[in-house]
């Protein structure tokens, strides 16, 4: 027996048991009721009688007796009255004790945590499916079909970078489930137009997407494909803003950079996980343009501008000083109102 003093035991009882409506039934090995006490009515147990089978009063314990184990714990079981109970069953020399403790608070606490955890797991699965869908074997197969082999080869493409502005700061303030939800919503708004315009999502790096146009054959030139995709991305993000603002949810902005030219394309990685690798000035330039783009702005290089025909009028000249590039660079900007 515990060597704790009676006042300490009483304090522990008051602290952890008293408010949990303790109640008990003492039964024989086969479940025949011998004695009872406590707040049994909390759990819908009324007027038990000596010699009654326990299942007549506690239907959920039908089939539990005789018990094989020395003790048993059934956590957060909904009882007849709807009250959630922890049921502990244990033996002493007197017989088998069935103890009921109200678990409503514990259930509510666990419920919040479990709900978040499960939602997060579902989001994580969705996210990994998304990555697999756009970056996994599909890309490698698509590339093989379109003529890019394991050896690198040069191809004229347009490279698009789209970045969600302020995401890192946002993710530090919010819980992970919310962050994933928001990220998924924005990634979907970016990725779908890329695919619709015949592009390939090459990489998703945190909150930024790199897409390449010109890998699959198309009647539309890669610069035109990429610019059309960029317009649609901005349109999607603006619609998303309206929806989220109406629901008083957080919103973020995006910036886009596009550059066109010859790049080296190749497939890298192991047999089971082959991914595309694009190397060249246009890749770096697109990334630099994206880093300079303001919120809701598309910045494109001269090569791209020259090949977008009727869409040229939507762009204005912008001279930029970019890190790693000598002299000012002639770029073209298209800004959208928020």
């Amino acid at each position: 027996m515990s060597d704790l003093a009676q006042p300490v035991l009483e304090f522990i009882y008051d602290l952890s048991i008293k408010d949990r409506s303790p109640a008990f039934l003492l039964v024989k090995e086969d479940g025949e009721i011998q004695d009872w006490g406590g707040k049994l009515e909390t759990y819908g147990i009324t007027a038990p009688g000596k010699g009654d089978p326990i299942e007549d009063h506690v239907q959920i314990l039908d089939g539990f007796f005789p018990l094989d184990e020395e003790r048993l714990h059934l956590a957060c079981i909904e009882t007849e009255t709807g009250v959630s109970a922890d049921i502990h069953i244990f033996f002493t020399g007197k017989g088998c004790w069935v103890l009921f403790l109200d678990a409503t608070l514990e259930e509510a606490r666990q419920s919040v945590l479990q709900q978040r955890l499960n939602e997060l797991c579902l989001l994580r699965d969705k996210h990994s499916k998304l990555l697999e869908q756009y970056l996994g074997k599909d890309i490698a197969e698509k590339l093989v079909q379109t003529g890019v082999r394991d050896a690198e080869e040069s191809k004229y493409v347009s490279v698009l970078f789209a970045d969600i502005r302020g995401f890192t700061a946002y993710s530090e303030k919010k819980d992970s489930a919310e962050v994933f939800k928001l990220l998924n919503a924005y990634l979907a708004a970016i990725i779908q137009p890329v695919l619709d315009e015949g592009g390939t999502v090459d990489k998703i790096i945190g909150e930024a997407v790199m897409a390449i146009f010109g890998i699959s054959s198309s009647e539309v030139t890669p610069p035109l494909q990429s610019v059309k995709a960029a317009f649609r991305i901005i349109g999607n993000v603006q619609s998303l803003h309206k929806e989220r603002e109406a629901q008083r949810q957080d919103t973020l902005e995006i910036g886009i950079g596009i550059a066109s030219g010859q790049v080296l394309l190749g497939i890298m990685g192991s047999r089971n996980r082959r991914t595309l690798s694009a190397i060249g000035h246009s890749v770096n330039l697109a990334s630099l343009l994206e880093s300079q783009a303001r919120s809701n702005e598309i910045l494109i290089d001269q090569h791209t501008f020259q090949k977008i025909g009727k869409h040229q009028h939507r762009f204005t000249k912008a001279r930029l000083k970019l890190r790693g590039i000598e002299g000012p660079l002639q770029a073209f900007s298209c800004e959208f109102e928020e």
Partner: peptide, 25 residues
């Protein structure tokens, strides 16, 4: 709306299988 279950929720329903009524817990 997805609501996770903690512990066990118990419901009952009586069905008829053949000519027998069965209470399902």
């Amino acid at each position: 709306k997805y609501l996770t279950t903690v512990g066990v929720k118990i419901d009952k329903k009586t069905v008829t299988a053949g000519d027998r009524d069965v209470e399902l817990l």
